[in-house]
């Protein structure tokens, strides 16, 4: 697992890291390590941002502090990031970064390319699995830094019981609570949620389109959600007939696939073709001699897909 974390102290740091990295790959960012978290017992929260949209990265965030210092979370106004305005989230994140003596945080930006690639692997890796792995990676990272975690709170959209079991099997020494809407129940998860959401917004705003260097970028993509007409229109307008979309788009979303099917060149993948060929073989071909199969002198040529094209 790549544990190449960049340290950031302010929201401006986060923005500059995002715009200096290749957006096709995942980026991991973390705060300085607050001294108190290595000695005192700590709580840790985890939440995600940007799971549904067809555009941009999905961001996993964590925040942690000692049990005794958790009152600071309420003082900063940590609440569910979805009910806060963008400005309010930015202000709270600014507050979090200023409390670097007691509050620690980290984010994992999962690039749209990673999401598409996982989904289009031969052995498909689901979005849930990506999410779980990101959460596990963040917990492990904080443990590796020497934070004395005793209790973990995780937000989930899927069934909490199995997820909780999975986490407990990996971290048996921790007390783990996985729950729906944890971001509105536990302030430490709200803080994680704000870190994730602020990072995702920053990632979208500072997205570097390597496909169009030096060009004015059409960033009128609406909410990014698949059912938003502005987002759909954006997808249709930003197509390359061969390569499809710029890498900000999640190719594996059915909305994106449909737009490509109707507006870009058809692409057949070798294995899919093979499968079709196999299906269309008539059963009678298994009886009697197949005239197509010319016996070669040795399997050497068959093994290598070589055929004789010149008759002597």
């Amino acid at each position: 697992m790549n544990s190449n974390y960049k340290v950031c102290h302010t929201i401006a740091d986060v923005q500059s890291v995002i715009s200096s990295e290749n957006n096709s790959f995942d980026v991991r960012i973390e705060s300085d390590l607050p001294e108190s978290t290595t000695t005192e017992k700590c709580i840790l929260g985890i939440d995600e941002a940007g799971r549904g949209p067809v555009l941009g990265p999905m961001v996993y965030g964590t925040s942690y502090c000692s049990v005794d210092n958790q009152a600071i979370l309420k003082t900063l106004g940590c609440a569910d990031s979805k009910v806060l305005s963008e400005q309010a989230r930015d202000d709270i994140f600014d507050g979090i970064t200023k409390q670097s003596e007691i509050l620690g945080w980290a984010v994992h930006i999962i690039s749209p390319t990673t999401i598409s690639n996982c989904s289009f692997r031969r052995q498909k890796c689901s979005l849930n699995e990506i999410s779980h792995n990101a959460a596990i990676g963040l917990i492990q990272r904080v443990l590796d830094r020497g934070v004395n975690i005793c209790e973990v709170f995780v937000d989930t959209v899927g069934p909490p019981e199995k997820y909780q079991e999975k986490l407990l099997s990996i971290f048996p020494q921790l007390k783990i609570t996985v729950s729906k809407k944890a971001d509105s129940l536990f302030p430490i998860v709200s803080a994680a949620s704000i870190c994730a959401k602020v990072t995702r917004d920053a990632a979208l705003k500072n997205w570097k389109f390597i496909e169009r260097p030096g060009e004015d970028i059409d960033s009128n993509w609406g909410s990014g959600y698949p059912n938003d007409p502005v987002t759909k229109e954006y997808l249709k307008k930003n197509i390359d007939p061969v390569f499809g979309f710029p890498s900000i788009v999640r190719f594996s979303w059915s909305t994106a696939e449909l737009v490509l099917k109707n507006n870009a060149a058809q692409v057949d993948w070798s294995d899919e073709e093979e499968d079709e060929d196999k299906k269309s073989v008539p059963i009678t071909s298994f009886f009697g001699q197949n005239s197509k199969q010319v016996q070669q002198k040795t399997p050497f040529f068959d093994d290598r897909g070589l055929i004789v094209t010149t008759k002597f």
Partner: peptide
């Protein structure tokens, strides 16, 4: 296989922005 040519289109080669994409 990328089906870049429309039927009846006799364009010999079609270009793709490989460097950028």
């Amino acid at each position: 296989k990328i089906h870049t040519r429309e039927p009846g289109d006799d364009c010999q080669t079609s270009t793709a922005p490989v460097d950028r994409y």
